[in-house]
Design a protein around this nucleic acid. Structure first.
Lengths: 222, 222
DNA sequence: GGGGAACTCTTACGACTGTTCGAATTTGGC
DNA sequence: GCCAAATTCGAACAGTCGTAAGAGTTCCCC
C-alpha cells in the first residue's frame, strides 16, 4: 500500500514487489532450499523455518506447496526469457534483422550463464530452474512441453541464419544445445571450482560460456 | 504367490540371476516405477504391489529402499559401461590403437541410444539411469563424481585423437556431449513419436544417434 | 477510535512414509 | 518325512508430511 513514513519501513522490501514481507521471505527461502535439495526433499516446515515465518504462511500466501513451486518457476522463467528475448532483439537490431548464428546462440546462452556467476543475485535461481525442469511437478513439465513460443523465436532465427538446414535439424540441434546447458548441475559447479583452484570467478563462467558457444556453433555449422 | 504350476518352476528365472524370484520381481518393478515417476514419487508399497509380492520384500532382499535404488543403479551402469568399453575396444582394434573422433564418440553414444529403441529390453533401464543421475541419492551422485575411471578412457582416447586440444577442452566438450545425451527425457521421447507420426521406430532412434554424432563431432573439431 | 479486512499463530487432523517384528509358511538337504 | 534355514506374510510402529480450522493479533480506512 501507500508508504506513510513511520510504518513504511516494513513495507519497502527491496525489489519491485509490493506484497507482504512474509510472502517474499517464503518465496526466497523456498527457492534456495528447492535449488539446493530438490522439491521433494524440502518440507513446508523447512521453508517456513528458514524464512523465520509461521508454518501456515505457505498455504495462506500461495495456496499450497505445489502452487509455491509453480509461482517461483513462472517468475524466474519469465525473467530469464525476458533477458534472452532482449538479447535476441538487440542482435536483430545490430544485424538488420538477420543476426549470425553466433549471436543467436549467445542470446540463448549468455543470460543463464551470467546468472551463474558466483556473486550474481540470480545464481540460485538458475540452479532452481534447472532442478525444476527435471524434478518439478507435472504442471511444470506440461508448461515446458506446451509453451514453446519462446523457443520458437530462437528456432526461427536459427533457421533463417542457416536456411540449408531442415526445421527438424534446427529443432534437434537447439535441443542439443539446451542439453549442454541444462546438464550443468551442482557437481559441475564444483568442478568449476576445481579448475580455478578453489574459487569460481566471474571470468571462469564467461570462459565456460565461450566454450559452449564454440561447441554449439560448430555443431550448427556441421 | 508363485505363478501357477508346481513350485519347482519358480526357480528357473530367465537371466543369469540365481537369486530368489521375488528379488527379481522387485528389482524389475522398482526400476520401471522409478524410471516412470521418479524415486521420491514411488513408495515401497507401490513397488511391492506392482511386483505382486509382500511389502516386507524390499527390506528383506535389499535392506532398504535407498539400497534398492543403488543396486539397480550399479547394475545398469555397469552394463552400459561394459557395452561402451567394448565398442571403444573394437574401435581401437580396427584403427591400430588410434581410432578417429567419430568412432570414439560412437562408442560413447551408441549403446545408450540402442537401449532407447522402442522394443529394446533395456529401454526402461536407460530412462531409469537418466533419472537416477539427477534425482538419485547423495550416494549415487557421489559415485558419479568420484568414479571417473570409465569416462577417463574416453577422454584419453579423445585427447589422442585431437592432440591439439587441451585436457580442459576435452573435458568440457565431453561434458557437453553427455549433456546432449542426458537431457533426453521422457518428453523428448514423446517428441520422437510426434516426429514419426505416432510410433517410434528403431530407425528414428538411429537417426537421432546420427544427429548427435554429427553435432558432437563438429563440436570437437571446432 | 471503532470496525472490518488482512495477516499471524497454535494446534491438530488424516494420510501417507520406510521399516521392523514375530509368526506362518515354504524350501532344500538328508 | 524330518528339520533347520530361507522366505513370506500380516500387522503395526514411529515419524513426517501437507493442509486446515479457529482464535488471536495487527493493520488501514473511515
Amino acid at each position: 500500500m501507500s508508504p506513510t513514513t513511520d510504518a513504511a519501513a516494513s513495507h519497502e522490501v527491496e525489489a519491485a514487489e509490493t506484497e507482504a514481507a512474509t510472502k517474499n521471505l517464503v518465496f526466497v527461502a523456498a527457492e534456495r532450499l528447492f535449488a539446493l535439495h530438490g522439491f521433494q526433499n524440502v518440507s513446508v516446515r523447512d521453508i517456513t523455518a528458514a524464512a523465520g515465518v509461521n508454518l501456515a504462511s505457505v498455504n495462506y500466501h500461495f495456496g499450497s506447496k505445489d502452487a509455491l513451486l509453480f509461482e517461483i518457476f513462472k517468475r524466474r522463467t519469465a525473467e530469464l526469457n525476458r533477458e534472452r528475448a532482449k538479447m535476441l532483439h538487440e542482435a536483430n537490431d545490430r544485424n538488420a534483422g538477420d543476426p549470425p548464428l553466433r549471436e543467436i546462440l549467445a542470446a540463448l546462452l549468455t543470460p543463464p550463464l551470467r546468472w551463474l556467476a558466483p556473486d550474481h543475485e540470480r545464481r540460485i535461481s538458475l540452479q532452481f530452474l534447472i532442478r525444476a525442469r527435471s524434478e518439478g511437478t507435472d504442471e511444470i513439465r506440461n508448461v515446458l512441453k506446451t509453451d514453446v513460443s519462446h523457443l520458437r523465436r530462437f528456432s526461427d532465427a536459427l533457421l533463417k541464419a542457416r536456411p540449408d538446414l531442415s526445421p527438424e535439424d534446427v529443432y534437434w540441434r537447439l535441443h542439443f544445445t539446451l542439453g549442454m546447458l541444462h546438464n550443468n548441475r551442482f557437481a559441475e559447479f564444483d568442478r568449476l571450482n576445481v579448475l580455478s583452484e578453489g574459487q569460481t570467478s566471474e571470468s571462469d563462467v564467461m570462459a565456460l560460456l565461450g566454450r559452449m558457444l564454440e561447441f554449439a556453433e560448430a555443431g550448427f555449422l556441421a
